[in-house]
């Protein structure tokens, strides 16, 4: 690709970045779009500096894979923070009591959420303390994404002084589109 066509690549990146910014809740589009955009940038630069076809593709794919891994890491961190907030709200509650929870992300990679949480039952086994919870997601920073109140069930367990999310992953037979 001649250097003169680099701006054209930039103009292709801009809509991708825009899509990523306007729909950060659509994490899949963000990941795919962001990684693809970064890959394109990497390939475009490699091509401009005169790398061959194989090197260009290799650099593009490498950058794309790196950015995708980075975005997944950021999404997992943001999601872990949300789970921690719900678990922290549920931790001190007795069965039947209701508390509010909310999460505001520093980086808008996942939607801000708030809701309530209540305890269904306490599960005690020796030194292991766990609780079954029902929590609601009442609103997000993008109301069009979840226009109604949703209720969900999960487990939290005590880890030292803190309470942590304890629901295990679904059976591999039930993964379906998760991977």
């Amino acid at each position: 690709m001649p250097p003169s066509s680099l701006p054209r690549f930039r103009s292709m990146l801009a809509p991708l970045a825009l899509v990523g910014l306007t729909l950060p809740g659509c994490s899949e589009l963000l990941t795919e779009g962001g990684a693809a955009g970064a890959g394109l940038g990497g390939a475009a630069i490699a091509d401009v500096v005169g790398a061959g076809a194989t090197t260009t593709t290799g650099i593009g794919l490498g950058v794309q894979a790196g950015v995708r891994a980075g975005l997944h890491y950021a999404q997992r961190r943001a999601h872990a923070a949300a789970q921690d907030r719900i678990a922290a709200a549920a931790g001190p509650l007795p069965v039947g009591a209701v508390a509010a929870w909310s999460i505001t992300h520093k980086v808008p990679i996942e939607p801000d959420e708030r809701g309530e949480v209540t305890i269904v039952r306490v599960i005690e086994a020796g030194s292991i303390h766990c609780k079954e919870i029902v929590f609601s997601v009442d609103a997000t920073s993008r109301p069009e994404e979840m226009p109604r109140r949703g209720f969900y069930t999960a487990y939290v367990c005590r880890d030292g002084q803190a309470w942590r999310w304890a629901s295990a992953e679904p059976a591999t037979e039930r993964w379906g589109s998760l991977q």
């Binding site: 029902v134 929590f135 209720f151 969900y152 069930t153 999960a154 999310w165 295990a168 992953e169 991977q179």
Partner: peptide, 25 residues
């Protein structure tokens, strides 16, 4: 698990803990 919301029953099992996601993402 399923919960009743707005007049109908919806699947309610929440996502696994992030450390248990492993290869899910």
């Amino acid at each position: 698990t399923a919960c009743r919301q707005e007049g109908r029953w919806k699947w309610a099992a929440a996502e696994p803990a992030v450390p248990r996601w492993g290869a899910l993402q």
